[in-house]
């Protein structure tokens, strides 16, 4: 029934470990070679699934920035302002593995599996429910935003940026309030917040591939620590 998982589907907890590992690498200032290997590693879930395009683009960006650093290095003596370019590229390079890991975790995981993983890790309901609602709300807000922009263009814009903000936020928030009310009612009638145990459709198990993936994620961190 949940066919879209594929053989490389990792447990959300494994992906969480991946995100943690990417952050550690950033804090540890891992050498560029380790960082590059990690970036490729974290992109694997994207490359193996339907989000291949995103993976390719992120890696393209990463290696493009690496190339910029290499290209800039020999010229810096002659043109000191190129430092700025090199430093920006280096800073972005440090952040990109984190972003790739984050995208891998969010884009390749079904929301239901996330919820299930959180419940497995005994995250309390008061945390789980707002996160679910947040995931539900993001696309809605994007849709609302577009509608409001259209309405504003037809009504003729304003030159005052504060007014413009006002004109966008008020309808956005008012609509969010209505949606939240409707959503609450619908969720209550479906038993959200009932006493008694809550179960999940998704059945998550840490498999061999999860263990392998976690070990792989640990390798760059260990190398960064001891090299």
């Amino acid at each position: 029934m949940l066919a879209s998982r594929g053989p490389l589907y990792l447990d959300p907890r494994t992906k969480l470990a991946m995100v943690v590992s990417s952050n550690l690498l950033m804090f540890l200032h891992a050498p560029a070679s380790i960082e590059a290997v990690a970036a490729v590693l974290f992109a694997v879930p994207l490359l193996a699934g339907p989000r291949r395009g995103t993976g390719v683009r992120m890696l393209g960006l990463y290696f493009g920035l690496v190339a910029v650093q290499f290209a800039v290095a020999p010229l810096v003596g002659a043109l000191p302002w190129l430092h700025l370019l090199g430093a920006t590229a280096a800073a972005l390079c440090m952040m990109l593995p984190c972003m790739i890991a984050g995208l891998s975790a969010v884009l390749t995981t079904r929301p239901g599996d996330f919820v299930c993983a959180m419940r497995r890790m005994h995250v309390p309901t008061v945390v789980v429910v707002p996160i679910v609602v947040l995931m539900r709300f993001f696309p809605t807000i994007r849709h609302d935003w577009r509608q409001i922009r259209h309405a504003q263009r037809l009504r003729g814009g304003t030159r005052n940026p504060l007014d413009a903000l006002d004109r966008t936020l008020v309808p956005l928030l008012m609509n969010a309030v209505t949606v939240a009310q409707d959503l609450t009612v619908a969720a209550l009638t479906k038993g959200l917040g009932a006493d008694g145990p809550v179960t999940s459709l998704a059945q998550l198990r840490l498999r061999l591939r999860d263990a392998v993936a976690m070990a792989l994620c640990a390798v760059p961190v260990v190398l960064a620590l001891f090299l």
Binding site: M1, G112, L201
Partner: peptide, 13 residues
Amino acid sequence: NPKTQYFHANSTD
């Protein structure tokens, strides 16, 4: 309102 009565972003959920 069909737009405001689903709680999960995914239909199976």
